[in-house]
Design a protein around this nucleic acid. Sequence first.
DNA 1: CTAAATGCAAAACCTTTGCCTCAAA
DNA 2: TTTGAGGCAAAGGTTTTGCATTTAG
Lengths: 136, 136
Amino acid sequence: MTNTLLEKCLDKNIRMTNQRQAIIKVIESSDDHPDIDTLYLRSVEKDRTISIATVYRTVKVLEEAGVIDKIEFGDGRSRYEESGSHHHHLVDVESGEVFEFFNEELENLKIEIANKLGYDLVDHRLELLGRKIKKN
Amino acid sequence: MTNTLLEKCLDKNIRMTNQRQAIIKVIESSDDHPDIDTLYLRSVEKDRTISIATVYRTVKVLEEAGVIDKIEFGDGRSRYEESGSHHHHLVDVESGEVFEFFNEELENLKIEIANKLGYDLVDHRLELLGRKIKKN
DNA sequence: CTAAATGCAAAACCTTTGCCTCAAA
DNA sequence: TTTGAGGCAAAGGTTTTGCATTTAG
């Protein structure tokens, strides 16, 4: 049940190379939300032969296979994380910190809203932007 | 109460030019979610002297004034719409059509979630991706 | 062996910016 | 008149791609 990302990729018959393994490990062990350049820098440490073009091509493959998700926070860059439970993000507008949360009620509500509009929910994205409440 | 977008801009003391007026009218009369290039093409029809740089600079001004919102659907482009009620978008994954919706329960739930995490909600983005339910 | 993946560099996009001219207030 | 806005083209940043080479299966 708790397959590694690598195992998930192999299950999907994604052709495996050293470069892809390195990138996959980086994604798996990143609990922030790295952009392409960050993935590239972390991957190069494991495998010097990796080029940024390969990072771009690999995340595309992994995203299309459904094992990772692309996140957009509204700056010009795409960020990536392993697919899993449908959690969402709260971004601290002052520090830029990103927190993840999951809310059952929200999940149900989204499905209900889509159904009302005549749609099956395929995917969804939610980001909250917040400012830390000051304790007086 | 139902001020035009132009009036809202004047209220905010935004310096007004022919080019800005043309762009503002285009945004106001667009009920899709145009990207910069689309805004540019529609605006040029009204005023031949408009350049794409002005469109970029104008939407930035309007966004910072809070009279329009930037939307990101995950393709590389930013889209814009007039600010107003906090509605959200459902994107038909097959046709690319975008529907807007508003859900009171959802609004409350988001505020509640942010508060639980110790945050005041400043802004939020939600998109649902759906596939039309086939009637059998 | 064959089809697919990689590296490199060029190209393609989208967006921003410098500079000089023009126009709003 | 003065400060800000616009046009143009160049530059910036991110992502994609063509091509020759290498590698997984």
